[in-house]
Nucleic acid binder design. Structure first.
Lengths: 223, 223
DNA sequence: TTGACAATAGAATGAATGTTCGACTACAAT
DNA sequence: ATTGTAGTCGAACATTCATTCTATTGTCAA
């Protein structure tokens, strides 16, 4: 697209270094810093190549000013025009998953949630369900690590107290006294709960002691 | 809103001048330039107030470097009208993570993405970065399982070829011939790559054979 | 071969720039 | 009155930094 092709290896290197330095430091590098980073032993050579880049329209220089180099707009990765679309929904962030307690989901419809507890998510993450029947939980601790869900992750659920085979569900196991996230399989007169993590083994429970609280729609992790 | 109120008249003036100078010139002003613009007659006074602004968390300084001043993100006047209006962004879904190949990110400017390859995400998931510098990858297979990232997951990256300690990054290890997602730690003359999964052990690599491809912003999993 | 030119290295120069220190003022608290 | 602190000024100092000049090397065309 651009004329980066016609540039020398060193000039491309200078450009690349400029971008990362600017991004990291917030101000441009000196001629010497460019030289060290790109393996050029003489400031005059850096100066020479810098001027070449100015000729190519990729840089601008403020003469006799330290660090007086800037990337031309054509050299920056410019934001493309992005068209908006109204495709977000707000779901209640009702609390945290604690392995040793049932998930407390306000069962009532028309519940009123505080503005601060709402989570704005892309509609695609709701899997086609109405936002009113979706809620979110923040995972506390590493108890769900065998479901590849870590501390601080946010899980989106659809409220439901049943499950199809293969569904990923949050279940309260009153025999064990904990909530867990597993894949659900009805096998004869018992239920197999299969961890998401392939190296973990399944557990088997009695349907009477297995309270499904919701089906997992998505997992979101902010790093 | 912010604590600009507690700043002195001069400090506010310095901040204002910094913003316009940075915007006009593309690089930060010198201490003397700040002094002239704000009517301060002594470089030491500028230096003094600059340090006050650093204490207030509004500036960062790189000591003994010319023009080594940068605005903290909180100090920048955001184009809030634009940002607040939009709640979703579209980022390119450039492909898949394959453990045995470097991530192919179109580095060039003016790249045109197909509409079908765009992923619509909530703006909050971009961590404040411009959508133009964010890209998404779909994970294929279980190679990233020690980062708690499974088959089919979507990972959002910010394009960058460096990392701070503790960053979660995608790195290409040419000695091993694979791309991996790890937390990045610079330790002396080598780099420690720490898996996200707490039971996995770190690996150590030579900086020369460690090509950072991007920093992880978020992980999205649709069940 | 010769000449022109691009690319590079090394060193010297002078201006630009951040840092430090002593002294002074204004003001509030003790 | 005394003390302490924030803010200021001026000057000296020590580097950092861009610029410039000379010389060397390699390439390509005449």
């Amino acid at each position: 697209m651009r004329e980066r092709n016609k540039l020398s290896e060193r000039q491309r290197g200078i450009l690349r270094f400029m971008e990362t330095y600017l991004d990291m430091q917030g101000f441009p590098p000196t001629i010497r810093e460019i030289g060290e980073a790109t393996g050029i032993n003489s400031t005059s050579v850096v100066n020479y190549n810098l001027n070449k880049l100015v000729e190519a329209g990729l840089l601008q220089r403020a003469s006799a000013k330290s660090r007086g180099i800037r990337l031309t707009s054509t050299a920056k990765s410019l934001p493309k025009a992005v068209i908006a679309a109204r495709t977000t929904a707000r779901v209640p962030l009702v609390g945290q998953i604690v392995a040793s307690a049932p998930v407390a989901v306000p069962d009532d419809v028309g519940y009123y949630y505080d503005e601060d507890d709402m989570l704005e998510v892309s509609l695609a993450m709701l899997g086609g369900f109405d936002a009113a029947e979706v809620f979110a939980l923040r995972v506390k601790g590493d108890s769900m690590i065998d479901a590849m869900i870590g501390d601080g992750d946010i899980v989106l659920f659809r409220k439901q107290n049943y499950a199809e085979n293969g569904d990923m569900v949050a279940v309260w196991l009153d025999e064990r006294g904990e909530t867990t996230l597993k894949r659900f399989y009805h096998e004869g007169d018992r239920i197999r709960l299969q961890p998401e993590h392939p190296t973990m083994k399944a557990i088997y429970v009695d349907p009477m002691h297995c309270l499904i609280q919701g089906r997992v729609l998505s997992v979101i992790r902010h790093i």
